[in-house]
Design a protein around this nucleic acid. Structure first.
Lengths: 333, 333
DNA sequence: CTGAAAGCGCTTACAG
DNA sequence: CTGAAAGCGCTTACAG
């Protein structure tokens, strides 16, 4: 910048005005402006965003923390977030917590130290404290997928209770009476809501809950746990006739397990699943699906975040926004 | 920082020394150091990384640009990159080029303007110019998946020719004589190398190349194109007996297409595929696989990048490093 | 219409 | 052992 000023015999100030697009506002002559623009081009001038950031206090970067990049759902959301952020002139910084407490708090800390303007996060069950901190310090963020009902935060979630209910009800309508399900990280709100729907559907149909049909696994170890859980169900209740998978990752593990045991799962069971991933339709063509609107979740999360960045300080405006998106239900069979 | 200094009656300088861990080096008394540390904790001091960055010229952030986050392979690499970067104290900024020229050059530009220390990128076919620029300006970067043989750059790629060769040879050994394949973005080095392997295997077995068995699709539109390509092959050469898929995304589309047409692909064809994704083994249990070492690619890419960050300036050292990783071959059927 | 100067929050050569 | 001061590259209130 100094170089341009020297080259043209102007001051840094003037160059800055022009380059930041405020030339007209400052009534700088067309001619001077053109000279500056040309000079910048000649010297191949690249503004130093770090300096600008230090001065302005804005990085135009948003952080996204998800439990796992590999998971199809989160990577779909990541894509949507990146897309929308890019459109709005923001850059994405990504962290994968791997559902580990320390990783997650470190990432939040790391991202927060002024490297990002705001945060989008699907928190693990451990992070209530970190989230509460963000609230207290008025750091802009929005939760998705998982949230804490008792905290007044921005979030975008889905109608999980309804999805669990509708999937289960459909199985019942198709004749199932012994419907199994697997809890994953049962302390998560999102899990509880889907399970609540499952229970309501059973209740409304007068089917008693059978604890043998409900397994528990932890997210961190679900790959190894899920197979065991399925096997246990098959042993305890050999005439199980339906499976309600509250997330696609459980359906995948279950199908793997069925396949290894040579079980003709497509005909032996009726199945329903929250979310669908590529090839699932081929593997289990008759499984009903409640589809998570990953694109919309990502888009809305960015919008809520940018909105809350803009109104930072405006105490009069509504402080938080909560969005509940509907899942699309696809009944098959 | 000033606040801490004021609180303790010390200068900013001293506080800075202590906080940056250089207290001992500067022979600052244990006592003073403890006071500073305590003061920092009391005031809940958070260093401003932006200021530090401006001063030090390092952001400790690396950029990753991939063609698509949703793609299983790239998201596996992203995960490995994030993991390794985190371990080394770096943060990841992610961009998805969607194989669009403008998006890609914008991202490179955006990331480069001092927001990142270095870049890891799987370039599209359009980006030779941008990459050449990075070279000329000595900006640290490493390519993966795709590279430009005529440019002297860091890269980590795989033994693609061998993979294409081994998969095809296996099909031939199993009795196939009419092996179809689909070119995707045929101007990409990586595609050409895999196709070269396919051709070599045919040549060595004295099987003549049949242009009807080779389709072309573009990455940007592969979803719609692939089905058409498969259908064309089935019409032109109804007795096709093998498929060599040079990437998993083509296998997925092909299998979808077979499935929709009610074709019993597992028994009618023998198949081979570069890379494997969840559930593929269930859908096509007899398909052979050349597995891309996504984890290793990500890890190595980060290491090469950090190595080249460290030696920036050391003209005597070897300038670039090239890594070729082997794919694991899994023969089934 | 244009410029001199302060300041964002750090680090570090230099002087005591 | 400790501190005053310069500087990283910008933006902008203030003065002409």
């Amino acid at each position: 910048m100094q170089d341009i000023a020297d080259l043209l015999g102007l001051s840094r100030t003037t160059v800055s005005w022009v380059l930041s697009g405020k030339g007209d506002e400052r009534h700088i002559s067309r001619e001077t402006q053109d000279r500056v623009l040309k000079g910048a081009a000649d010297l191949d001038y690249k503004p130093n965003l770090i300096a600008k950031t230090l001065r302005m206090g804005k990085t135009h970067t948003i952080g996204l923390i998800i439990p796992s990049i590999e998971d199809q759902f989160y990577s779909e959301v990541a894509k949507a977030v990146e897309f929308e952020a890019y459109k709005q002139g923001y850059t994405l910084t990504l962290g994968s917590s791997e559902s580990e407490k320390d990783r997650e708090s470190n990432l939040i800390q790391l991202f927060r130290d002024k490297l990002i303007d705001g945060l989008i996060i699907a928190p693990t069950k451990y992070s209530r404290k970190e989230i509460t901190n963000l609230c207290r310090q008025d750091f802009p963020f929005v939760l998705f997928d998982r949230y804490f009902p008792e905290l007044d935060t921005n979030y975008v979630i889905t109608d999980d209770e309804r999805a669990g209910y509708m999937l289960t009800r459909h199985l019942i309508e198709k004749g199932c009476r012994k419907i199994a399900t697997i809890n994953i990280n049962k302390h998560l709100e999102v899990t509880q809501r889907r399970m609540e729907g499952y229970r309501r559907a059973l209740r409304e149909s007068g089917i008693e809950q059978n604890p043998n049909l409900i397994a528990d696994v932890e997210f961190a170890t679900y790959r190894s746990d899920a197979a065991g859980a399925i096997e246990r169900i098959l042993v305890l209740e050999p005439d199980v006739d339906g499976f309600c998978f509250i997330t696609h990752i459980l359906a995948i593990e279950a199908i793997n397990c069925f396949h290894e045991h040579g079980i003709d799962f497509n005909n032996r069971f009726k199945m329903g699943c929250v979310h669908e991933v590529p090839m699932m339709k081929i593997v289990a063509p008759k499984m009903s699906i409640a589809r998570l609107p990953a694109d919309e979740i990502g888009r809305q999360a960015v919008r809520l975040l940018l909105a809350s960045l803009k109104k930072a300080g405006n105490a009069d405006e509504q402080r938080t926004r909560k969005v509940v998106l509907p899942m699309e239900l696809i009944y098959r069979d």
